[in-house]
Structure formats: structure tokens, C-alpha cells
Design a protein around this nucleic acid. Structure first.
Lengths: 143, 143, 143, 143
DNA sequence: TTTT
DNA sequence: TTTT
């Protein structure tokens, strides 16, 4: 059993690539998960490397950017590799089975007024698969 | 082991009461958790009864209302009782250890323009204990 | 987001049925999840109705029985129905995405010496899909 | 929100130390979490560094050893440090809020016949706090 | 007896 | 209507 749930903000824009063999989409990004009880001067967030596959990866690349808030369900995956100088390094990633979008930053308008809450009318489905019904108007009301 | 994580919207305003013995605060509310893959005509959410204790209960009563979005970490608790006619009924509640506020609806202004997103910059601490740093300004940038 | 992880013991043997339309297997059972801090005289477990589909349902029916210990990953699902007298009743089930077998009770030998631990060495795969590699020898070393 | 649940086996005996300031107990160990769908020749487990504090840490040191099976509830914590040559390294630990014992290996008898399942009679509480009612007999029946 |  |  290996189950992880995180809610946090993208620390950087997602990167999208495709596997050599099957051409499957793979998105990676860094997620900042706030530590609610961090004291002044302490590290106040944990930074996790998130890996997403398939259609969900494409949705992440298309709709998320630095600052976007997401909820993630997945599992922890560890690995290792050797540096060019022959040293062993260990990695820890979160492989996401599900990414739920809680806000986004408009990619054309980042740092400006582009961030909207995913409000959505009744029946709104704000997750990557079957993604629709964005709040794309210009007001500041999230739904 | 009994661990639950939910992200959803309050289906009604929280109710606050205090235990007879110690006067400890207890908040209860119904949480609507959307089903991302619900088809047209199907039930599109699960409705869970959430129970919160102590300081966190008071924060829920003060800062949340119908429509607010929260993330909850806790455990499932089952129980039973007898009706006035002697029938046995079973209950299932979620006892929350942690409630993270993802949005709120301003209680004085509900149904209007009162809903703000909880900022969520890396430095922001948007949880009930030590609650602070709301994004209360008038712009539409969440951090 | 709706994620549940439970570790507990089957309170009764699983029941297996098949859906009317597609003939898909559905197993249901009651899981007793111990409350670690229950005081003398208090309820010391929560009892959840677990629903499993497909090949995993068949494995549950074949390898689990009353008393078996399992870890479950899934989601909470609520529903409602009307009694024959027209009263509305509410239900809460756990729909399992994954069932990991931590022990079983031999179905031919229940109540006797049939309970074996599921090994669990690093190479062992003790989950319903691709179920194999039981520790069926007569010693008491689990790997 | 940062919630992790793992079920796995200790890859090594726990190490116990005490904090410099308050003398609080801290246990650390490596947990092997099996990957149920690993193919022949692939890495078949993830190895996580677990950190436990307080009374629970002492129970881990006293009752667990290499091979013991546990369920863990906690959170992911990342950090960084500098090597003696000035390079930055990143760490990822699991800080455990709860450790549930699912089996142990007798510390005096490791590698032999010492591993018993935590069976326990009715009302048994097999978790670190208030730890009791071990199955210490010599037979191979877990309860 | 429901949210978005 | 319960497990260990």
C-alpha cells in the first residue's frame, strides 16, 4: 500500500515530454505544499517532484502554470542513478494517478490578472479528464 | 489504520455546539465531494457528515459557510442508535483532524460577491489553527 | 478528491455476485477497523461496507474469509434508497480500487489452523491482481 | 494537505537517538513498500526513510526489526543540506504520525523462528501507544 | 436531503 | 450488526 494525497501550488510551470517508445505524454512539475505550523524563519513548504502520465499530463501542461493550486492523489516512487563521476544518487517522485485543478494561472497572462478560481456552474467537473467549463470571463467572481 | 482525505464544498453552513461536560467546541457540516466521472443524470457528488473538534471547530464556524471549499484529513467513524420506534440505525461520520481552507464565502455577504479565494502563495498559511494572512484585498490576484 | 486507506479484518465472509448487464464480478464484505485508543467499554472498531469490482472481487471471494486482514485503498461513496414503507435511508460504502492481502483464513479450515500470514519478503507480490507467491510452507517464518 | 499511508516491511533495524535539546526520542528506519505490478527484472519495491518521534519511536525501537511489517500514516517532508565539498543534496523523509504493527521479528532471535504475527485476542490494540497483548507463544498460530 |  |  502506497497512497499519497497533496494539496499545493506549482512552484514552476509544468514540463511536457513524450516517451521514446510509445510517445506517451509525461508531465513533471514541482509542487510546493505549505507546512501549516511552520514558525517564523523555518522552512514553510515541502517541494515534491510530481510526475503525471497520459491525457492527464497533457491537461496539466495546457491548463496549469506556476502558482496554480492542485490536489493530487498518487504514490511515492523512489529510484537511483549514477552521476557522471560515478556517485550514486537517490530520487523520490510522486506519481500522480489523479490531478484535481483548484485554480490555474492563465498562461498568456501570467503574473498579471490571469488567475481565476475554478468556479464552474452546477455539474462542473474540474478535473483533467473530460476537462471543461472553465471560468474564462474577465470578472473576479470565481463562478 | 483509518485515513481519509477529501476536497469538497460545504453543502450547508456549519453548526457549532459545545460538549456538556468540558464545554469543548464541536462543529458539524455536510461536505459535497464531486465525482469527476459522473455521467449526465447520475449522482454527481457524495455527501459526507464532517465532525470537527476544538479550536479548529471554532475556526470552521467563523470562517466557513455554504459553498466554501475545504480539504479535510481525518478518519471514518461508524456508530448506531435507536429510533423512537426502536429501530436500529447506522451512522457514518468523518472525524476531521485537519481542515484546510481553500476558499470561503463571506458570512455577511453570502450569495453576493463575498467569495474570495484563499491566496495560497508559498508563505500563506491557510489552515484553521493559527489562521491568518487572508487575501482580503480587492484585486483578483490570489497572492 | 476522495481518498480512503483502511487496514482491518473481515467481519464476515465476502459475498460475490455478478452485475445483471455485463456479468461483472462484485464482492462485498464488512471490514472491522480497530480503534487504537478505544477505552474499556467503548466501541473498539469501526465497521465499513467494502465493495470491490472485477478480477479483484473474484480474488477477494477466493482468498479471503472472516478474520482475514487486508489493506484497502479506495473512495467513500454515499447513496440513498427508499424502504418498503417509503422512508428514505442513506448508505455509505467504500469502493475499493485496491485490496492488499495481509493474511487469510483458509476457507476449508476456518477456525482451525488454517490462518497463514502472507509472507511479504521484498519479492513477494501479495495483492489480488496477479495473486501468487503465498507462504504456504509449514514453518512460521513469513519470508 | 500532505497525507501519506504506507504498508511495508522494515529493510533494516530501527535506529534510536534522542534530540540534543529536550531529549525526545527519534527513531528512523528504511521501509520497503512492494510494487504490486512490478515486472520481472524491474525494481519491485520503493524504499522510504521513516522518522518517528516520542513514545512511538521508543515502541518502534523495542518491538520492530528488519523484516517487520507495519502500516504508517504521516506526511512527506523534504529538506536539503550541503556536503563537505559544498554540493547541495536534497532529502525526502516520511514523518510518521502513527505506526501500526502488523508483525514483528523477535529481536533476540532474528533470522530464526522469532517472527510472530500480531494476533491478539479480542480487544487487542496492536499499535505503538498503549502497546500490549503480544502473541509471544511458540506456536505458529497468530492468535 | 445538500455544494461547486 | 460484525473482526483481531
Amino acid at each position: 500500500m502506497n497512497s499519497v494525497v497533496l494539496v499545493g501550488n506549482l512552484a514552476r510551470d509544468p514540463e511536457l515530454r513524450f516517451t521514446a517508445g510509445s510517445g506517451k505524454a509525461v508531465a513533471t512539475f514541482s509542487l510546493a505544499v505549505n507546512r501549516p505550523f511552520a514558525k517564523e524563519g523555518q522552512q514553510n513548504a515541502d517541494f515534491l517532484r510530481i510526475v503525471v502520465f497520459g491525457k492527464s499530463a497533457e491537461n496539466c501542461a495546457n491548463y496549469l502554470s506556476k502558482g496554480s493550486k492542485v490536489a493530487i492523489q498518487g504514490r511515492i516512487q523512489t529510484g537511483s542513478y549514477e552521476t557522471s563521476t560515478g556517485e550514486k544518487r537517490y530520487t523520490t517522485d510522486i506519481v500522480a494517478d489523479r490531478v484535481e485543478f483548484l485554480s490555474r494561472v492563465n498562461k498568456e497572462n501570467q503574473g498579471g490578472f490571469g488567475q481565476d478560481d475554478f468556479g464552474g456552474g452546477f455539474n462542473n467537473n474540474n478535473n483533467p479528464e473530460g476537462f471543461q467549463a472553465l471560468d474564462d470571463d474577465d470578472d473576479d467572481i470565481p463562478f
